[in-house]
């Protein structure tokens, strides 16, 4: 009897793992298709009589990028100052606090600016995208697009994904400047190094490769956030509760994907 229960438990566990694996692979496949379809509509939309509208992309750029500037500025400034505080504190042990600029420059440009920008956009725009598509799905608005002869991927997904691919690197660049500037302000206040000297040293230390490292990562983050938002939104079932779950799932998955990708990217690029 007990043996049968153990066997049943094992079968159930295996079945559950199998189902989850299949569902996961399905979602990854759907995400990959979404990326392919996005580029398809961008390139061949006009031939299909459904060109992607620049106005829709611009609208999304404002929502994803422009409206996120205040929060990105606040967090970038905070991160920059935090790095300066921590860097000076650590280097003081060795009496090398004047070299803090090295740590700040590389950390902000290569890691923290893309990471913090990606996380903010995942929480702000990735969740909004999942909620929007999920709500549209349960309200039959996606069906309405189909029957009006409007491809939902072209109409909903392409503008959001393109806007993220434009605005995330742009915001990361903005974040670089804000983070470095406020770190410089703290360095100036604490160590008395002038802002001009700090800026000179930062420019001397950083190469275009460092800048592109951060911006390249942010472009990948943009695709991840958009795809995860869309896949979760499109998978919504069961009304408002389903939308809530999909939104939460989209944020958690996006942030996780960003952090894991960040590590992998850093590993691959620095080999």
């Amino acid at each position: 009897m007990q043996e049968a229960e153990t066997k049943n438990g094992f079968v159930n566990f295996t079945e559950k793992v199998g189902r989850l694996t299949v569902a996961g692979v399905e979602e990854i496949g759907m995400g990959a298709m979404m990326v392919v379809e996005t580029f398809y509509w961008l390139i061949f939309g006009r031939r299909e009589k459904q060109a992607v509208r620049l106005g829709a992309i611009a609208e999304q750029c404002v929502a994803v990028g422009i409206q996120a500037i205040p929060i990105i500025a606040l967090l970038a400034a905070t991160i920059g100052m935090m790095l300066a505080i921590q860097g000076i504190h650590t280097l003081r042990i060795f009496g090398a606090e004047s070299r803090v600029t090295v740590g700040i420059s590389f950390s902000v440009v290569r890691e923290f600016a893309p990471l913090i920008t990606g996380i903010v956009i995942a929480g702000r725009s990735g969740s909004a995208l999942a909620a929007r598509i999920g709500t549209m799905k349960i309200n039959q608005e996606v069906d309405a697009l189909y029957v009006m002869g409007i491809n939902p991927v072209r109409f909903l997904v392409v503008p959001a994904m393109v806007a993220m691919m434009i605005m995330l690197p742009a915001l990361t660049l903005f974040s670089d400047f804000v983070g470095l500037f406020f770190a410089g302000v703290y360095v100036n206040l604490d160590l008395g190094i002038s802002l001009a000297a700090y800026a000179d040293e930062t420019i001397e230390l950083l190469s275009v490769d460092d800048l592109m490292h951060g911006l390249g990562k942010s472009a990948i983050f943009a695709v991840l956030i958009a795809v995860i938002g869309v896949v979760n939104g499109a998978s919504v079932q069961g009304g408002a509760e389903g939308v809530g779950k999909a939104t939460t799932r989209a944020v958690v998955q996006s942030i996780s994907a960003i952090i894991v990708t960040d590590m992998l990217f850093a590993f691959v690029v620095t080999r």
Partner: peptide, 24 residues
């Protein structure tokens, strides 16, 4: 094909049960 289906759909109108108006 896709283009022909879009052309056909322009000759069809659908009023959904809940309206399916775009809330934005």
């Amino acid at each position: 094909n896709n283009v022909e289906l879009v052309d056909l759909r322009q000759k069809l109108g659908v009023a959904f049960q809940g309206g399916a108006l775009f809330s934005s």
